[in-house]
Structure formats: C-alpha cells, structure tokens
Amino acid sequence: MAKTKIEVLNAVIDGHKQGEQLDVDAKSAKHLIAIGYAKEVEEKPAPKKPPAKKKDK
C-alpha cells in the first residue's frame, strides 16, 4: 500500500503527539483525516541553493 504523510492534530496516534508527522498507509490516513485527528502534509521539494560564488584573488 502507498504511504501518506500526516500531521497529528489534537490526538495521540500510535504514541505520536500533537504536531508530530508520521507515515501511515493511505486507508488509515484517509480515516484519521475524516475524523479530524490528523491532516495531510504536502511534501515540498527542497529549495535549490544557488552555486557558491568563487573569490578571485
């Protein structure tokens, strides 16, 4: 099954407290979101850093 990243709201899910993020299967994530225990976290790609400037001496 596919994993979905969720953030815990006002609940304790599998020992994880409010604000913690965890990966659960899609079916469980859908249920936890529906009952208001969690919200889905959008995974953003890491920002690309511009190349470092070289110092000329």
Rank of each mutant, 00 (worst) to 15 (best):
M1R: 06
A2R: 10
T4S: 11
K5N: 14
I6D: 04
E7P: 09
E7L: 06
V8H: 13
V8G: 06
L9W: 02
L9A: 09
L9H: 00
A11Y: 03
A11F: 06
V12H: 09
V12F: 07
I13P: 05
I13D: 06
I13L: 11
G15K: 04
H16R: 14
K17S: 08
Q18R: 12
Q18K: 05
E20I: 03
E20A: 05
Q21R: 14
Q21G: 09
Q21M: 12
L22Y: 11
L22R: 01
D23F: 13
D23I: 04
D25G: 11
A26Y: 07
A29L: 00
K30S: 15
H31L: 13
H31K: 15
L32T: 02
L32M: 12
A34R: 07
I35H: 01
G36N: 00
Y37C: 04
Y37D: 12
Y37P: 00
A38Y: 00
A38E: 09
A38K: 00
K39D: 12
E43K: 02
E43S: 07
E43V: 11
A46G: 15
A46H: 15
P47W: 02
P47R: 06
K48D: 07
K49V: 14
K49D: 14
P50T: 09
P51V: 11
K53P: 09
K53R: 13
D56I: 08
D56R: 13
K57M: 03
K57C: 10
K57N: 13
